[in-house]
Design a protein around this nucleic acid. Structure first.
Length: 632
RNA sequence: GCCGGGAUAGCUCAGUGGUAGAGCAGGGGUUUUGUAAACCUCAGGUCGGGGGUUCGAAUCCCUUUCCCGGCUCCA
């Protein structure tokens, strides 16, 4: 007999029993055996401590989805024996598997694969772990003509490698897996996509199938429903419905046209930005949209960014439509000798730039070709770095919070320690910059993820990412050191000791771009903007035309109060108009009938909440004032 | 840019080789309305663009633009 401590209970069993035999139901998918992840098909031969893993945990989900991807691959191999297996991992939400197959999958194939998966699940085929010597396993997959697996094996240094078998299907895999295919209950294949082998453009394009699975049908239904709900928040859909913006085929891809309501929203966001930046000692400047080619040669953009730049001929010279604001701002800095007394000097600009992004990457407002960066450049001395970075992070936090963004992913991108050659700047600069970034993150108390080797060649950076309705990450704020431009432009200041010294340049943006930020904002609020952002804040509605004059007076007083107000006096029933305004997501309606005229009141209806009853107009104004500031 | 799927009225969508449709939105009229859709009526489309096959194309083929989902890229 051996002792097993399982989920904090100790039981005695005979040696050689499998973990799964100790468990009653199929809830548990795998286990940690003395801390190590194992299949629950594993036999127990000695005293151990077991922690059972179910679907509710991150690990559980990963195992479940990974096993699901094996089931999908099994089905694909049965239906299309020529398809070669590439990789099939679990991802944040579900799983995928990449196949190399001559004929791409058609959407109809998904249904076929699903049916075959169902059969495989019904057969409840065991997942069997097999450990082989490196050489053996190589032969095994070579015989099966699984060339991608062969490539992967060749890169594994371990002497023994595991694979998982289900009948005649086998996949190179570390595991663990659920004990048998019957553990996969509710699943759905979601989409098809092309994906390069190893994410490399020069490699073969594989066929990727995405799917999701859950232990119960209800969970699957909930998930699918959630996706449907998220699609209703899509900023592209809401942008049209709420008349915020358009992107026209006839005008060009990725070029945003702001309608009056969208332009109002954007103007409010810009005005808030200006207010905060002036308060934080930034100075505003404005730089031109085009500049001579030689400027972009000097900055280095011409060498590194040419493919993304739009060029235009001007007389006998090439001009460039600016893809960035840095060179212009730097010229302003350099327009005279700067003293250390001026530093830190902070230039900010809502700079509209144009970038020739690959057509396949464009996405509503979130990825465009013409964008306005809320750009700023901080010129400072080395010893000012930490304070300045801290101020930027504080400002970013404050401003993002103002818009209701409280949770965001923060990434610190540093250079690849193994390949220091490919970066500009000295070791000293990199170390100082990185130290400053980390210290600032610590000072403002932001959790962050360190991204080794993700820095751009000219310096380390911090990125803050916002999520869209479907949970996809989009970079908003960014704080980047630049060791390149100060050298290329000889950006200096006169120090206290009378010597010219190279200045430290930090690029930073808080919104990232107005376009992307507003795209995320629309999805964040699902189009129901808080009062301070709503393009129209109040709609005044007389019930019949007997109240029109009173309504006009109310509109006038609202305008005088500084509200964005509209009158809706069309000859539709009041219920019709209430619905009309309700779906347009305007925060407040004032409904005026004979009663209101007699009592000198307004009847207030709040978006999503309904009738708040009658009040004096002054009371209404103070009600609005209490929520006018947004969050903070 | 690459892989796959798309594009029909302002919007959402039906229409698989034989005279282009619906709902909503819009115009006109009737209705004067009390907290989420009154009624009648009218108008609206080179079926994304170009080329081809066919007696005949929204429908089949080619091409191009744009969109969607991924991949890649993201100074």
């Amino acid at each position: 007999m051996i002792k097993v401590r399982m989920n904090d209970k100790i039981i005695e069993i005979e040696a050689g029993k499998r973990i799964v035999d100790l468990i009653g139901d199929k809830k548990y998918l795998a286990a940690r055996v003395n801390g190590e992840l194992r299949d629950i098909n594993t036999e127990i031969t000695e005293d151990v401590e077991l922690n059972l893993i179910d679907f509710s945990t991150e690990e559980g989900k990963e195992i479940y989805w990974h096993s699901s991807s094996h089931v999908m691959a099994m089905a694909v191999k049965k239906l299309f024996p020529d398809a070669k297996l590439a990789i099939g991992p679990a991802i944040d939400q579900g799983f995928y598997y990449d196949f190399d197959k001559k004929e791409p999958f058609s959407p109809d194939d998904l249904a076929k694969i699903e049916r075959k998966m169902k059969q495989i699940i019904d057969q409840d085929i065991p997942f069997e772990r097999v450990v082989m010597k490196n050489k053996e396993i190589l032969d095994f997959f070579e015989k099966r003509h699984e060339s991608y697996k062969v490539q992967l094996i060749k890169e594994i240094e371990a002497e023994e490698i595991s694979l998982y078998r289900n009948d005649d299907f086998a996949d190179l895999c570390r595991g663990p897996h659920v004990p048998s295919t019957g553990y996969i209950h509710a699943f759905k294949l979601l989409s098809l996509a092309g994906a390069y082998w190893r994410g490399d453009v020069k490699e073969t394009m594989l066929q990727r199938v995405y799917g999701i699975s859950f232990p119960t049908q209800d969970q699957l239904n909930d998930y699918l429903k959630k996706i449907e709900e998220a699609k209703k928040r899509d900023h592209r859909k809401l942008g049209t419905e709420l008349e915020l913006f358009s992107i026209f085929e006839e005008a060009g891809a990725g070029l945003v046209h702001w309608h009056p309501k969208g332009a109002t929203l954007r103007r409010i966001i810009e005005e808030y930005w200006i207010k905060e930046h002036l308060a934080a000692d930034y100075q505003l400047n404005i730089t031109p949209h085009i500049a001579r080619g030689r400027l972009w040669h000097q900055s280095g953009h011409y060498d590194f960014y040419r493919d993304n730049m739009y060029a235009l001929p001007v007389e006998n010279e090439e001009y460039i439509l600016k893809p960035m604001n840095c060179p212009g701002q730097i010229l302003i800095y350099k327009s005279k000798v700067r003293s250390y007394r001026e530093l830190p000097l902070k230039y900010a600009e809502l700079g509209t730039v144009y970038r020739n992004e690959l057509s396949g990457t464009l996405h509503g407002l979130l990825r465009v070709r013409g964008l306005t960066i809320d750009d700023a450049h901080i010129f400072c001395q080395p010893e000012q770095i930490e304070d300045e970075l801290t101020k930027v992070l504080e400002l970013a936090q404050k401003m993002l919070n103002k818009f209701g963004f409280h949770e965001f992913q923060v990434e610190l991108s540093v250079r690849d320690p193994k390949d220091k050659e490919k970066y500009m700047g000295s070791d000293e600069e990199w170390e100082r910059a990185e130290k400053g970034l980390i210290a600032a993150l610590k000072r403002v108390g932001l959790e962050y993820k360190r991204m080794e080797g993700e820095a751009v060649f000219y310096g380390p950076k911090i990125d803050i990412k916002l999520l869209d309705a479907l949970g996809r990450e989009w970079q908003a704020s960014t704080i980047q050191f630049d060791f390149n431009l100060p050298r290329r432009f000889d950006i200096e200041y006169m120090d206290r000791d009378g010597k010219h010294k190279q200045v430290v340049v930090i690029h930073r943006a808080i919104y990232g771009s107005l376009e992307r930020f507003i795209g995320c904002l629309i999805e964040h609020y699902a189009g129901s903007f808080p009062l301070w952002l709503a393009p129209v804040q109040v709609v005044v509605m007389p019930i019949t035309d007997k109240e029109n004059r009173y309504a006009q007076q109310i509109v006038k007083r609202c305008k005088k109060q500084g509200l964005r107000v509209a009158l809706n006096d069309k000859s539709e029933k009041i219920n019709y108009r209430i619905r009309e305004v309700e779906v347009s997501k305007v925060p407040y309606m004032l409904i005026l009938g004979q009663r209101e005229i007699v009592d000198k009141m307004v009847s207030v209806r709040k978006h999503k909440e309904g009738n708040l009853g009658q009040m004096k107009l002054k009371e209404f104004f103070s009600l609005l004032e209490s929520e006018q500031g947004g969050e903070n």
